[in-house]
Simulated assay, not measured.
Amino acid sequence: MNNIIWILILQLLYVPCFTLRTIFIVKQLRTQATILGAIEALIYIFGLSLVFDGEQSFMSMLVYALGFSIGIFVGTLIEEKLAIGYTAIQVNIPTLNQPLIDRLRQEGYGVTVFEGTGRDSVRYKLEILTKRNQEEGLYDLICDYQPNAFIITYEPRKFKGGYLLKAMKRRKRKSTKKAPESSSIS
């Protein structure tokens, strides 16, 4: 019974490490991926040695598989909370919503506005780049001003230059200084 508990615990450590290591590799965070890879390998060896040690019971193998599936769930939750990286957001709106654009810029977001022709009329596209951990707040802000906006999100691998980095630092400083307040549109 003691081995079964250890197998479950090791799987709950191993799989989130595996998930995060994979994400770090994709995001080209080599040092973090290397460290997690070493930790992951040790946990994996200990876990397998417990599963295949001695009698190799069906229960220990079942717990190994169950721990693996729960570990995937835990790993994805951790990744969502860390929200590593950036998100490029395209907002398509039917009219030029200057109050929305002004508010986004006031909040420190870099916004580029494009005009294009849609099926029925002229439409406007806003391009915004933000950190992934600020994505939901940005969605809420956009929906407050433009509930019918069509929003597409991309995850850029690389970018260089522009207004973004200074604005993000200012926005972060500003948000840590003031207490959260309810947003209302006048």
Score class of each variant (00 low, 15 high):
E40L: 08
Q106E: 15
R170A: 14
I185W: 05
F159W: 14
Q28E: 15
K166L: 07
G54W: 09
F58I: 14
L62Y: 13
F24T: 02
I23C: 02
C143M: 01
S184D: 12
Q11T: 03
K166C: 02
K81G: 04
K160D: 11
Q134E: 12
S60N: 13
Y86I: 01
T176Q: 12
P99F: 06
R123H: 06
F159V: 13
Y154L: 09
M168S: 13
L82D: 04
Y124N: 03
A33C: 02
T22S: 08
I7K: 12
S57Y: 07
K125L: 15
Q56V: 12
I185G: 05
L141P: 12
Y145P: 11
T176E: 12
E115D: 04
T112M: 07
I23R: 15
I185D: 04
T153D: 10
V113Y: 01
S184A: 14
F58H: 04
S121P: 00
E136C: 01
Q134T: 05
L138T: 08
I25A: 04
D120H: 06
K27I: 02
Y124C: 02
T87K: 14
L48E: 01
F150S: 06
A65P: 01
G161N: 09
Y86V: 02
E55H: 10
I128K: 08
S186L: 14
E40M: 14
G118W: 03
L96M: 06
F114V: 07
R123A: 05
S175V: 05
F24N: 11
Q106N: 12
L20R: 06
G54A: 11
Y14S: 00
Y14Q: 03
L96N: 11
T95I: 01
K27T: 06
R170C: 10
L77I: 10
L8I: 10
I25H: 05
T22N: 11
L77S: 04
S186V: 13
S182M: 08
M61F: 13
F114Y: 10
T22H: 08
S60R: 13
N148V: 00
E115W: 04
S57K: 11
L29R: 14
R132P: 13
I35E: 02
D53M: 10
I45F: 13
F150D: 04
K178W: 11
L165Q: 14
L66M: 09
D144V: 00
L104V: 02
R21M: 15
I84D: 11
V15T: 09
I84L: 15
I4Q: 11
E127Q: 11
V15Q: 01
K166A: 12
F24S: 10
V111C: 00
I4C: 05
I70G: 06
S186C: 12
G108R: 03
G47V: 01
F114S: 05
K131F: 06
S175A: 12
D140V: 00
Y109V: 04
Y124K: 05
L165N: 15
A179V: 08
V91E: 02
V51I: 15
S49D: 14
L100P: 08
N97P: 07
A41R: 03
L50F: 15
S57G: 12
T22W: 02
L138I: 04
D120T: 06
V51H: 09
I78M: 10
L42N: 05
L96F: 11
F52C: 07
M1W: 03
R132T: 09
T19M: 02
T34I: 09
L126Q: 07
W6Y: 15
R21L: 05
A41F: 13
M59A: 14
I78A: 04
R157C: 06
T19F: 00
S69M: 04
E181L: 15
